Amino acid sequence: MLDIFKIFSNDKNSSKNVAKERLKLVLIHDKGNYSPTVLEALKGDILLAIEKYMEVDEEHIEVKMIKTKSQDNSEMVPALVANIPIKRMK
């Protein structure tokens, strides 16, 4: 699975792994027609909406794009996956 935020982090990944993640990002971008900037903006918008109702653990948020089967199983389509740990409800 693609971990989009690792591409821009300061982790000590080997250049092979970084190149592999970037290639995945380019391929998904071509299929889904969005950029990392759009994904980051979407993450911010999602957080703004969610934070009206609950307090979240912003350090452990994970938002990424994956490929999944379409509803009729005819093709693979991009899907947004968000893992947002909730600290408490407001």
Rank of each mutant, 00 (worst) to 15 (best):
H60A: 12
I7T: 05
V38N: 14
P78W: 03
M76H: 14
K43R: 11
Q71A: 15
K90H: 14
E62Y: 09
N73T: 01
I61S: 01
M54A: 10
I4K: 12
V77K: 07
V56M: 09
I46K: 00
L2H: 04
S9I: 01
D30S: 12
L25P: 14
A82C: 03
I50N: 10
A41T: 09
Y34N: 01
S15Q: 07
L23W: 13
I50W: 02
K52P: 06
F5P: 08
V77Y: 07
V18I: 12
V81F: 01
A49S: 05
L80H: 06
K24V: 05
D11G: 11
S14H: 02
K87N: 10
I46Y: 00
M65K: 00
T68F: 08
Y53A: 04
M54L: 04
S15N: 12
K6T: 10
D45C: 06
E51L: 06
M65R: 03
E40N: 11
V56C: 04
E21W: 14
L80V: 00
I4A: 14
E58Y: 09
V63S: 04
E58K: 15
L47C: 02
S74N: 06
V81A: 11
N13S: 13
S70V: 01
E62Q: 04
R88M: 10
S35V: 02
L27V: 13
K6L: 13
R22V: 14
K16G: 08
E21S: 13
S15I: 10
N13A: 12
I66R: 05
E40M: 06
K52D: 07
K12L: 10
P36F: 06
E51F: 04
I84L: 00
K24I: 06
T37Q: 10
V38M: 13
A19V: 03
Q71I: 12
V56K: 05
I46T: 08
K24W: 00
T68I: 09
D30W: 04
H29I: 11
L80P: 06
K87D: 07
K67S: 05
E40A: 08
L2C: 03
V18K: 11
P78R: 09
F5H: 15
V77F: 02
P36T: 03
K20E: 09
E62V: 12
Y53T: 08
P36L: 05
E58H: 13
F5A: 12
A79Q: 05
L47D: 01
E58D: 11
D30L: 08
D72R: 07
F5G: 09
D3M: 13
K16Y: 15
T37G: 10
